[in-house]
Design a protein around this nucleic acid. Structure first.
Lengths: 296, 296
DNA sequence: ACATATTGTTCACCGTCAGAGGATAATCCG
DNA sequence: CGGATTATCCTCTGACGGTGAACAATATGT
């Protein structure tokens, strides 16, 4: 027996005061109605409706039962209504995990725009360079660099590719000279971003050839922003994701070298648990990310 | 999809925090659990549980949904608990319809004993010589004389058979003589119980022969008790159900005639709507009736 | 570090059960 | 007294929910 439909049948019969009428309303044959009621009575172990072919009335048990059943069914239908706002419009709490640096350099300035556009969304943004466990910690979405290989069953959506550039302050180049080929770096002061997957060896490509240069660094640090600060001070040179130093390059605080060599690329992904039944709030944030990282 | 089980599955998964565990508890395979959740999500149109093979957590939607679902399911299980006292012990309101005279002569004195034995039963006894419509008027049970032929789908349980006796007061017999054969009645004053099926012609049987005597009555009345009162006053004679005049006969207020002739019999039935899922309160009353009418 | 165990998912297969449809009996209504 | 409506019974069938295997991912233990 499908208890859910049996209960609905019972309710309709009771409220419409008739088997046939209930059948019409529910799109079932009178036979089905009869069967459902009979089975429900067998399940409950009590007669719920006294009936002849022409007349029907709830028994005392039926009245008591109906009362509870109505409450129960209403609560359940309410359950689905409660979800409908979350399904139709982007709303609710959105828990996002993102690496510190990416966020500060490419995202956080735009967040207010996102929140203004979707007034019913509450954003809980955790800046954390750890590779968090999405489901364990209850995140709706995380932003990750490409180092972290594809996880398990999670969905990864590519946001952007960040080219890297070798750069330093003009003062540094004046003092130490400007490298012409990758191997020149052996005699330079490098600043090392220790969380990178390519922290110890830098690769440069040109016309099919690949040069690998061991990094000669006296300063290792776990934040690209700290690296950038060191570069600005003229302390050394480093391989930086280009977007992080865009402003510095434009305004002359930093300069590039070996620009005709290709270097590492970091791909940014948005990671989320499933593609099915994607909540509007998550869809909205994904669209926002795509738009944001789609800019030049 | 059986929505009821799907909801139970969802609840168990959420509360036990795991598909496998829920499956064990519910006696279902993990595959079934997975399927149920997936279908429920499809029905609701939102992801309810984020899950990997090792970890699971409710989404925001899931949390909201769970809350309502729990309330709903609890209300429904309460529904069945609410019936259990009615199922296990005889209790609740018992609506009974019975003919006036039968009740007064054979039952009403015993009713207090019944109510004392079952303290949780409330009795609503309607004395009415009409042949009521059980289901229309919401009666649990009715007592009927045999005149009313077997109804429809209702169940009839035989309670007792009442023999009839021709009787009158001693003073009447002194004044008008005592009939020796049925045909003598033509010259007697009869009192007529007009609701009887045999009001106009009385039948007497003896050794295979049947005598029919038209009733010669100056007084017709719709209550056997009124007939009895008339007899007691010595006004006439009548055919009375024997139990109604038992006391009068024993104490000499009335006397029988034509005792060696067989007469009409009235069978008393208890009528109730269905044999299936007979409520304990009804069972109890039926047993009480059988006991009461089973006495000599 | 490797083997083992556990978990959620997918797939093909199958047994069962809920519903349709027709027939029947009972009952109401004009 | 028919015609109309109603609940119920019966049989048949298609759909659907469950199993059980294989599989992928991830803990756990020695």
């Amino acid at each position: 027996m499908d208890r859910f439909t049996a209960l609905q049948v019972f309710r309709h019969v009771a409220e419409l005061n008739g088997f046939a009428e209930a059948g019409r309303r529910l799109g079932l044959s009178p036979a089905a109605i009869s069967k459902n009621i009979a089975e429900l009575e067998a399940h409950v172990g009590a007669r719920l409706i006294n009936r002849t072919t022409r007349r029907m009335a709830l028994t005392e048990e039926g009245k008591i039962y109906l009362e509870h059943v109505v409450r129960g069914l209403d609560a359940l239908s309410e359950a689905e209504q409660a979800l409908s706002p979350l399904r139709t419009g982007p709303s609710g709490t959105l828990r996002v995990s993102a690496p510190m640096t990416v966020t500060l350099t490419r995202l956080s300035a735009a967040i207010p725009r996102f929140l203004t556009r979707y007034p019913d969304i509450v954003l809980d943004l955790h800046l954390d360079d750890r590779r968090v466990d999405l489901v364990r910690e209850g995140f709706d979405l995380a932003i990750r660099g490409s180092d972290s290989l594809e996880d398990s069953s999670l969905i990864a959506r590519k946001l952007t590719v960040m080219r890297h550039v070798l750069c330093a302050a003009p003062s540094y180049f004046e003092a130490h000279g400007r490298p012409r080929v990758p191997s020149d770096l052996r005699s330079h002061d490098c600043v090392r971003f220790s969380l990178s997957g390519h922290a110890d060896v830098w690769e440069f490509k040109k016309g099919g050839r690949t040069e690998r240069v061991p990094v000669n660094a006296r300063y290792s640090v776990t934040s690209s922003l700290a690296v950038r600060d060191a570069l600005r001070e003229g302390f050394g040179l480093s391989l930086m994701p280009k977007p992080y130093v865009e402003d510095d390059l434009r305004e002359g605080r930093l300069q590039c070298a070996l620009e005709d060599w290709g270097t590492v690329e970091t791909t940014l992904y948005a990671i989320y648990p499933s593609r099915q039944h994607l909540a509007p709030k998550i869809q909205a944030f994904l669209a926002f990310l795509a738009e944001e990282f789609g800019r030049p």
